[in-house]
């Protein structure tokens, strides 16, 4: 209600602003056209650098890491639980959604965004929050402003670099020494990770997400962090028949979960505790030798978007790999 009452006032102020803007000294800065090549290969060009950004949850965390503050965030979980948002200061940012696929479009429209920032998912050919599974009203988000985002493609490292580039294009201060420090921390974590893998040449891993009716086995070809790790030397098992309709996973009946026998199970990190509990409540869970040995690791599933998040995830994983027994899977 408050917002509705304010609308006419804002309109009057805006009109007044337009009237006197002819001689504004800021004009030279906003004259410069802004452009960015998005994850789908298309270049978005705007008359001015966008200032009012609505971003999907983890993407917003990436922008915030470089001091770019969006006006609105649409998350797919409550923001105090969302892995990338829970520790961030979100004051002054409007939360447009805390459930996947249910964006408050009225509120989003009220924010008058000039840019939407969301990951590009090549397998679905859609941006985060505009996929086939979301509410129809949510899809209107894509009509409010141009969308840019980095591709959830073959590398999380590239994804983090992509958001750094986007933040830079959006005017982030790249001279901040903190940025260089975070990057060198990441490089150290990556080297330690590679060393840990090199010390366990026979170690194989399988990334899974247990549910009540099936065990989802990740297809590394569509998981950027798994692709990174394969490139860095980790043996990630590829399922032989991913679901043709949603090729991110092979859906394995609980009767058949012993089909793949890794030395270490990577558990969906978005819901690590509850996923593990769901898995362990299945009588056939222990037919996976690694599960019987409780050889689990946290898989930072799709949510990592920054170098510092990636550093944390890699350090945890490195510690697990250093202790891992590479003969469990046989």
């Amino acid at each position: 209600m408050k917002r509705l009452l304010l609308l006419p006032v804002t309109a009057v102020l805006l009109l007044a602003g337009c009237g006197s803007s002819d001689s504004s000294p800021d004009d030279s800065a906003s004259d410069q056209a802004w452009s960015f090549t998005s994850g789908n290969g298309e270049t978005v060009t705007l008359d001015t650098m966008p200032k009012r950004i609505i971003a999907s949850g983890p993407e917003a965390a990436a922008l915030l890491a470089y001091g770019i503050k969006p006006v609105g965030i649409y998350a797919s979980a409550p923001v105090d639980e969302d892995l990338s948002l829970k520790d961030l200061d979100l004051s002054g940012i409007e939360i447009l959604s805390e459930t996947y696929g249910e964006v408050d479009i009225e509120a989003a429209t009220g924010l008058r965004p000039d840019l939407i920032v969301a990951d590009w998912w090549p397998a679905e050919k859609a941006y985060s929050g505009l996929e086939a599974g979301v509410q129809d009203s949510s899809k209107k988000l894509g009509k409010l402003a141009p969308i840019v985002g980095i591709e959830q493609g073959d590398s999380t490292e590239k994804l983090a670099q992509g958001y750094e580039d986007l933040a830079k294009a959006l005017g982030a201060d790249m001279d901040d020494p903190e940025i260089a420090r975070i990057k060198s921390d990441f490089e150290a974590a990556r080297t330690a990770f590679q060393d840990a893998i090199a010390a366990k040449p026979d170690l194989s891993v399988l990334a899974v997400s247990p549910s009540d009716d099936v065990l989802y086995v990740a297809n590394p070809e569509l998981a950027p962090e798994l692709q990174d790790w394969e490139r860095w030397g980790l043996d990630v098992i590829h399922p032989d028949s991913p679901d043709p309709d949603f090729p991110y996973w092979e859906n394995l009946s609980w009767e058949n979960v012993d089909k793949y026998q890794p030395d270490l199970l990577l558990i969906d990190g978005r819901t690590y505790d509850s996923s593990l509990k769901t898995g362990e409540s299945q009588p056939t869970w222990d037919t996976i030798k690694a599960a019987k040995a409780k050889a689990y690791a946290n898989w930072p599933t799709y949510w990592v978007h920054t170098y510092s998040e990636y550093t944390g995830a890699l350090e945890t994983l490195t510690a697990t790999i250093e202790k891992a027994d590479q003969s469990i899977g046989g």
């Binding site: 609980w254 009767e255 012993d258 009588p283 056939t284 222990d286 037919t287």
Partner: peptide, 10 residues
């Protein structure tokens, strides 16, 4: 034995 577990436990 995984197959026997499937029978007995599922």
């Amino acid at each position: 034995n995984a197959a026997e577990t499937v029978i007995r436990e599922l």
